[in-house]
Design a binder for these strands. Structure first.
Lengths: 206, 206
DNA sequence: CAGTAAACATACATACGTGTATGAATAAAT
DNA sequence: ATTTATTCATACACGTATGTATGTTTACTG
């Protein structure tokens, strides 16, 4: 095939990323073949190998280029909650996070892929390490945020910050799981927000 | 190879189920090959095809023969919570459920596999339907139980039964996810119970 | 105590996924 | 304008997973 312009190359790159993310989400990482990715992107495997050297490399690209730019600011805010009214800032960031999932499909998919990394465990050690690092990062960020909330006296009495953080993470994982299921009709407004609202109300002082 | 006794046949059957469940959990359904299952069970693929006609059939067997007998009584109790002190009965069943995960590995694995069914979606329609049915069943059982709790006046004021049920399911999924991750060291006593305890306390009247 | 059928191993045919090597056509460089 | 380099398709080689056909031994059956 003929050579394309640089802009065209970028387009195929994005198409490959998009296709891979959607296929990983809907069929899982292992079940998705390079042929399927290429076909969905409107190219062949030849194009794929021009951009990536393996399937694992795509996940890392999805994370770093698509999800990270959205997550980074939220993460930073959570790690540095203000001394005054940290609960308010916390709620705000959580809402940003949920809106992210609602609006930007690729971020939800990336998060989902990370959360379901065990699917590919054992067979690709390096990738598992990459994914588990991300997982642990989420945990740390949440624990840190809740610790701050506790220090600022914004947690209800008897609420253990670590337990609260874990509970939050569980709910987050469960909700994303639900939201991206191939069947069912998940609706954030109806099935997502109220649950978080209730959980935050049960944990935070106002 | 020589013919075995009926008891021996049953042993290989169980060995295949056990092997498959553990491999599905640790590597995922798609990534697990029939050779791996057979090898882990100490037989060859010839034996596998004597008992099952495909990989999908194994999941259904795992569910129906291994997990269902444990779940059924809990499910029935949740669907028929007593009029007086339903909250107490509910707590008790949830504890039974969690103990099940803690003690009986195959139940946890079965639950996990069901919860992560999207991994195999799209490619095996029939299996996806089977799995999604189970998923929806969980949801219904929980919603029914919380509805009963609400009617009996056992939910705290302002708690929507459906939202509470969803939140519970999210936490359950998230916890199982966490518990069966290949990395990390999940401990039910430390990471499971307290979260449920807190959640139930925030939802139920005592 | 034959004869049969069952339980499982072995071997084979087929399909498919991956990765690489090659080639064509044209954008970019000089 | 010519050359070079690049983007991607095509073709090939290899490994591996599946499913089936066949064979072997022995438990079961009458």
């Amino acid at each position: 095939m003929a050579r394309k312009t640089k802009a065209d190359k970028e387009k195929t790159y994005q198409a490959l990323i998009e296709a891979a993310a959607e296929l990983f989400r809907s069929q899982g990482f292992t079940a998705t073949t390079l042929n399927e990715i290429a076909e969905r992107a409107g190219v062949t495997r030849g194009a794929f190998y021009g951009h990536f050297s393996s399937k694992s490399e795509v996940i890392q690209a999805i994370w770093e280029e698509q999800a990270l730019p959205f997550f980074e600011p939220i993460k930073d805010t959570l790690l540095n909650l203000p001394q005054d009214k940290p609960a308010e800032a916390f709620r705000q960031q959580i809402n940003s996070l949920l809106e992210l999932f609602e609006d930007n499909n690729i971020v939800g998919r990336a998060f989902f892929i990370i959360m379901h990394n065990m699917e590919i465990s054992d067979k690709d050690k390096e990738l598992v390490e990459f994914l588990s690092d991300k997982y642990k990062l989420y945990e740390q960020v949440l624990c840190c945020a809740y610790k701050k909330l506790g220090e600022a006296g914004n947690l209800k009495q008897g609420v253990n910050p670590d337990h609260a953080a874990m509970g939050f993470l569980y709910i987050l994982i469960g909700m994303i799981n639900m939201a991206l299921l191939p069947f069912g009709d998940f609706d954030y407004e109806r099935d997502g927000y109220p649950v978080f609202e209730h959980y935050l109300n049960s944990v935070l002082m106002d």
